[in-house]
């Protein structure tokens, strides 16, 4: 059975390490915050200017001045800090953030990622995604393996405009986990979701990958 959104988030959370500073993207990556292992200290950064994101507020305690990058209401922790957008991206671009977990529309076997636009169809903008993939030490993409028609989103080469080239280290899909060696240009299958077979992954993956 393929992994659910929650299970993909839980799998991504297994990549966290004690003491990490982490930026979580919008969507499934945001759910990773619910699976930080007990006893582990992970500090979440929000690129609109906050370190130390706390849980959602109790009803009635929402503060319009306290939102995450997805514009959701959040809370602060005893260790939180606030700063300007320029300082926030100095953290990101200066290599001070240990890990970013982002959603993706396409990933290539070389570690390219596309997640900000579909020309002619969708105009949203890249927000902080281009800065994150360029500046963060380890970048994980969490995404659907294929679209509804069964077409692979794990490709030899991305067809959509790139967010960044050769920047993805790990890909977690609903079917499996791939590791990408950006120096060797190689993608390797690390694990399969329960009851998902290698044959199914091969059939639904356009990209070349090694396994075993």
């Amino acid at each position: 059975m393929p992994w659910t959104r929650e299970q993909m988030a839980a799998r991504a959370a297994r990549e966290l390490k004690d003491g990490y500073y982490v930026n979580l993207g919008i969507g499934i990556p945001t759910l990773v915050a619910n699976y930080i292992p007990a006893g582990m200290t992970v500090t979440l950064q929000s690129e609109n200017g906050m370190l130390g994101i706390g849980p959602f507020p109790y009803e009635g305690e929402e503060d319009a001045d306290l939102i995450n990058a997805g514009k959701q209401t959040i809370t602060e922790l005893p260790t939180s800090s606030y700063f300007s957008s320029a300082d926030s991206f100095a953290m990101i671009r200066g290599g001070h953030i240990d890990m970013a977990i982002l959603g993706a529309m396409e990933v290539s076997e070389m570690g390219d990622i596309a997640n900000w636009t579909i020309p002619g169809k969708m105009v949203k903008g890249m927000g902080g995604a281009m800065d994150l993939v360029a500046g963060v030490k380890r970048v994980i993409a969490v995404m659907e393996h294929a679209n509804k028609a069964g077409k692979s989103k794990i490709l030899k080469t991305c067809s959509l405009p790139l967010t960044g080239g050769r920047c993805i280290d790990l890909v977690i899909t609903d079917l499996c986990v791939f590791e990408i060696d950006r120096k060797q240009n190689q993608m390797r299958l690390l694990e399969l979701a329960p009851d998902v077979t290698l044959e199914e992954v091969k059939a639904k993956t356009e990209a070349n990958f090694s396994h075993g």
Partner: peptide, 10 residues
């Protein structure tokens, strides 16, 4: 104004 009001149960 809040764009996306997210809360947790008590």
């Amino acid at each position: 104004r809040i764009e996306f009001r997210t809360t947790r149960p008590r």
